[in-house]
Simulated scan of single mutants.
Amino acid sequence: MTHMTITVERTPRTLELPDGAIEVIELGVLLPFARKPVDLNEVGGYGQQKVFIIETREMSPAEFDGFAATLLKSRDWLKGKGGGAYGGYLCIEISAPGRPYLYINPEGSDYARYVARLG
């Protein structure tokens, strides 16, 4: 099996929002987001959006698999986060060894309302 490494530029930015300025990391690629996907099989979506990472959550492979299989499940750590700004989505980045990166924009909800994947 051949493995490939993809490097994506990550640029620190300060975004001025109505509630004040926030520090984010902007991904150097645009990603397609799926709206209300049940699981990773439905992630891919349409269009291309900027991704602004507002926080990163690291998971074990087992935690990631459980999360990815139940994207519509309510989770306290997503509640009130996300949204849109500057032509992109304010996202929580999810990472786990051996798994794709996920970018979650709960749009203020407590579940993964908009999801993109990288890898």
Rank of each mutant, 00 (worst) to 15 (best):
M59N: 01
K81D: 04
M59I: 01
D65E: 12
R75W: 13
K73P: 11
T70M: 13
K81G: 05
G87N: 15
G66T: 14
D76Q: 05
I92P: 01
P61V: 03
D65L: 10
I94S: 03
I94E: 01
A68I: 09
S95T: 12
P61L: 08
A68S: 14
A96Y: 01
I92C: 07
L71Q: 00
S60V: 08
L72M: 15
A96C: 06
G84C: 07
L90Y: 04
E58G: 09
I92Q: 08
T70H: 15
L71F: 01
R75P: 11
F67D: 02
G80F: 06
T70Y: 13
D76V: 09
K79H: 10
G82I: 04
G83C: 07
E93N: 05
D76R: 09
D76Y: 03
D76I: 05
E63C: 08
K81A: 07
G83D: 03
I92W: 07
G80N: 02
D65R: 06
S60H: 06
T70A: 15
A69N: 12
A69P: 06
A62S: 10
A62F: 06
Y89R: 06
L90G: 05
F64T: 05
A85H: 00
G84W: 04
E93G: 04
A62Y: 04
G80E: 06
I94Y: 00
A69D: 13
G84M: 08
K81W: 03
Y89C: 03
M59D: 02
D65G: 10
G87P: 14
G87C: 15
M59K: 01
L71N: 00
W77R: 06
E58H: 07
A96T: 05
L90E: 03
G84T: 14
F64E: 03
Y86P: 02
M59Y: 04
A85D: 00
L71R: 00
S95C: 10
R75E: 15
A62D: 13
D76N: 10
G83W: 00
G66I: 09
G83A: 04
T70P: 08
L78D: 09
G87L: 15
K79Y: 10
F67W: 07
E63Y: 12
I94D: 02
K73E: 15
F64L: 02
G88W: 03
C91F: 06
F64R: 02
L90Q: 04
Y86T: 07
F64C: 01
L90V: 02
S74W: 06
E63S: 12
P61G: 11
L78E: 09
T70F: 15
F67A: 04
Y86N: 10
K81T: 09
M59Q: 02
